[in-house]
């Protein structure tokens, strides 16, 4: 599975203004709902918050991977947002979070869900990949960085 196959490039946000965890998720949900008719922003926000309540998806090193399942969706959808200032996302290492990679999947997606999560998690473990996202000046730069990782694995 390639991450580029599921990334909604029109929903990518390079300068996310939100400063609170909830607002980050709300802004990303709205951006995704605008380009994906199957997604309703408020319902997606609920799903993401339910999952965050279990444990933050902030996996450290400035990265969070919010995710959840949605009834009525027929395929996996992802989006990316960046906040250069960093947001307190209750990350496991206690550090501010800069990179947000959102994944939403159909209710019955089986192994695809876990494969996608594990794959994204692996991308972000690479410090060089994170640096490329920090330095990206355009959505095209982000796409290029992801395409390069997709080609590696």
């Amino acid at each position: 599975m390639k991450i580029m196959d599921i990334l909604a490039t029109d929903a990518v946000i390079l300068n996310l203004g939100a400063r609170e965890k909830r607002d980050v998720l709300a802004d990303m949900s709205q951006a995704l709902a605008k380009v994906e008719p199957q997604i309703e922003a408020e319902r997606l926000l609920e799903v993401l918050l339910e999952r965050e309540a279990l444990q933050s998806t902030g996996i450290g090193e400035g990265v969070a991977i919010p995710h959840g399942k949605m009834v009525g969706l027929d395929r996996l959808v992802a989006s990316f947002a960046r906040n250069p200032d960093g947001v307190d996302f209750d990350a496991i290492d206690g550090q501010p979070t800069h990179h947000f990679f959102l994944l939403v999947v159909p209710e019955h997606s089986g192994g695809q869900y876990l494969k996608a999560l594990a794959r994204i998690s692996r991308f972000f473990r690479d410090a060089a990949f994170r640096q490329k996202l920090v330095e990206a000046d355009s959505v095209d730069d982000v796409i290029r960085a992801i395409e390069q990782e997709d080609a590696k694995l």
Binding site: E50, R51, A53, L54, H67, G68, G110, G111, Y113, L114, K115, L117, A118, R119, S121, R122
Partner: peptide, 21 residues
């Protein structure tokens, strides 16, 4: 394993993607 855990309902063969897990 909770209701909202991504792994809930998953087959193990699908979960063991990263080798270190």
């Amino acid at each position: 394993v909770y209701e909202h855990s991504p792994a809930a309902g998953g087959r193990l063969a699908d979960i063991e993607i990263p080798q270190g897990l």
